[in-house]
Design a protein around this nucleic acid. Structure first.
Lengths: 236, 236
DNA sequence: CGTTTGATTGAATCGCCTCAAAGTCTGTGG
DNA sequence: CCACAGACTTTGAGGCGATTCAATCAAACG
């Protein structure tokens, strides 16, 4: 079972208009975009966008809210594979036409669905450049993430996690020093490959050092420079 | 300084024709592809395709050989970010129009260069579907890799590394149980976030267990099922 | 206000890294 | 063809850090 867009997007009212893949499309051509992007009803925390194994004939663009993707391997372990902010694409991980991960809303969220078969309609609007820019950035972020996971210092991983989010918030013109955490500590720990206990210890240590201050649903970056240093602590 | 394609591709003679992004383009339209893909002269081991920081106005498609990408962070540490087989795309990691990693040939290699400005010419040939399929697969593999790095068991990482390569060889219709290793042990260790010493120990252990047999430039997978089990060994 | 879920903290174990030395392979020049 | 130099790889012993397991603590929810 999957969420499907119900109606054409209303781009002019979109809170994420400026950060969309289509943000450079001319006003006069917006109706084309609006007919192709199918806007979902608001999802609430816990609603799935799609499940692993379902037919993947489309992908999604975050319009508002926060989502996470995860997979479950054959041993039954859950792995959180990503968190998604407004403007970002979700549901691209596919194989043989099936979704390889599941996506779930972490708070009230709206998305726009884009069917594969409609992509051609968009490329005629000259968004190829924008699309490639996004994919390149995505690739870059994946490499950054790899960086981060390859180091096995717990502190470096947490620092990298914060910096990535901070950077993506800045991209949305939001204040990069305040990071909202819609996800649980367990999700974060899972995502960066630590145990909950270790993550908690790192939070405590960073707080004590004055680098961050953390509450349950928010982290403030107090010393971004120090955080960056911690994130660089490589192994070899 | 960057390798640039010197002449149009000769797709009909291409050893990787069937695995190219453009493999479904009609024979009659091949000349368009051949005019857009710029084929490089043969690169020898150690030649760079491009360096991090250079202007990224194009990306590359592996035609033959093997390449690796790597970055160097501000602390001076090298990180290997990927290995590339024929048919695969290299040089997509970009930010602000600059390459964020460097790519180097690990053996005699030829590549085709595709300029961003020429992509539009290809989308008119109906390769969008193929392009998206590739990007989705890429996304999927990135997630798999994440899986693998998140587990911090050395054995699981090595197993995952082998399985990924095996899978990609199979995609090229090559025998998936024999994995050629053009890269050094150091590169592999770096790539999967282990030390050379630990990697060596894992090789020894797997060999003793009869799961693989390894020589310097080749690994034979003797027990693929066992290897998969090892790769699943998750943390929690 | 009790219950459940999520987060923190503590003590001991296990595995990877570090440092270091020995061993092997490869290409080169005699 | 052999000897040698250099890079690459394997192997050994000890230390450190993240995990594990468990208990305590805090917060959300009915």
């Amino acid at each position: 079972m999957r969420i499907d867009g119900e109606q054409g997007a209303r781009c002019r009212e979109c809170p994420t208009r400026g950060y969309c893949l289509t943000n450079e499309v001319l006003e006069t051509q917006l109706p084309i975009v609006e007919s192709v992007f199918l806007m979902s009803a608001p999802l609430t925390r816990g609603d799935h966008l799609y499940h692993a194994g379902e037919l993947a004939d489309s992908h999604f663009h975050m319009r508002s809210g926060v989502a996470k993707t995860y997979s479950i391997n054959s041993a039954g372990d859950e792995f959180v594979t990503g968190f998604y902010l407004p403007g970002e694409m979700v549901g691209c991980a596919q194989q043989d036409g099936l979704h390889t991960d599941s996506a779930i809303a972490l708070e009230t969220t709206t998305v726009c669905q884009l069917r594969d078969e409609d992509i051609g309609k968009l490329t005629r609007l000259g968004i190829e450049a924008n699309l490639f820019k996004r994919l390149s950035e995505r690739e870059y972020r994946a490499a950054q993430r790899q960086f981060n996971l390859v180091q096995d210092s717990a502190e470096a991983r947490v620092a990298g996690f914060f910096m990535d989010l901070s950077d993506r918030l800045a991209r949305l013109d939001r204040y990069p020093a305040v990071i909202p955490l819609s996800m649980s500590r367990t999700d974060i720990a899972n995502y960066i490959g630590l145990t909950l206990a270790t993550l908690s210890r790192v939070f405590a240590k960073m707080t004590k050092a004055g680098v961050i201050s953390a509450s349950r649903h928010e982290v403030h970056i107090l010393q971004p420079a120090d955080l960056e240093l911690i994130g660089l602590h490589a192994v070899s």
